Simulated scan of single mutants.
Amino acid sequence: MCRWMPPIAGLRPDLAATGTAHARRPPLPSAASLCLACLTLFLVAGTALGGCPPGVAHDPLQVLSRGVNWTLERHARSYNYLEGDVRLRRLYSANKFFLYIDKTGKVDGTRRKNYAESLMEIRSVSVGVVAIKSVSTGLYLAMSKKGTLFGSVKYSPNCKFKERIEENGYNTYASLRWKHGGRQMFVSLNGRGKPRRGHKARRRHPSTHFLPMVPS
């Protein structure tokens, strides 16, 4: 005798006759599963080409949860001047003078390229802020409240300058501590190589522009 089979709901009549085997087809993968699989393949390919960046987890779920932090950490490492960085340079002004500090603490400019007192140690004390010290005399470049440049025996807040690379490739150095009428006061040498008062200098003046030259 023939055995009665209940109809399979949702199937066409021609498929229902084939039995329950087709009714038990495995479900299609979800969109989330496909995304996770693609990410896993991406990480495997990256590892074959050199691995993940330091500090980044290999677990796809951890990478997804830490994606934003990874971007911020990479950006933080892109700063040019980090605390503790030290450079030996001669500050050559756009007016063609080398800035120097003599033994008496006088700040001036010279056209002599290898003048001993013009060799400076530029140390980054924080991001974008430097201290400038004469290697020969051991004095720090400092600016008073009135904008006067002088050589200081001791390192103090007067010796901190904000170092900025301008659009023309020159650097400017503005006092971190002092301002005049809300305006920044800059390290400056005029056309005769003499220091100008900080409040008389402006960022766009050639007298405030310096090239940190590597000593030869």
Rank of each mutant, 00 (worst) to 15 (best):
P7H: 00
P7D: 04
P7L: 11
I8L: 11
I8C: 03
A9R: 15
L11M: 15
L11C: 12
P13F: 06
D14A: 09
L15M: 10
L15W: 00
L15V: 13
A17L: 11
T18W: 02
T18V: 13
T18N: 03
G19I: 04
G19D: 07
G19R: 09
T20G: 12
A21G: 15
H22L: 15
H22P: 02
H22M: 12
A23I: 12
R24M: 14
R25D: 13
P26Y: 01
P26D: 12
P26W: 04
P26T: 05
L28F: 14
L28A: 14
P29N: 11
A31T: 11
A32T: 13
A32E: 15
A32R: 14
S33G: 06
S33I: 02
S33Y: 08
L34W: 07
L34E: 04
L34A: 02
L36V: 05
L36T: 00
A37R: 05
A37Q: 07
C38H: 08
C38P: 00
C38E: 03
L39K: 02
T40Y: 06
T40A: 10
T40M: 05
T40W: 04
L41M: 04
L41H: 01
L41C: 04
F42S: 03
F42Q: 02
L43D: 02
V44R: 01
A45R: 00
A45Y: 01
A45S: 02
A45W: 00
G46Q: 04
T47D: 06
A48W: 04
A48F: 08
L49S: 07
L49A: 05
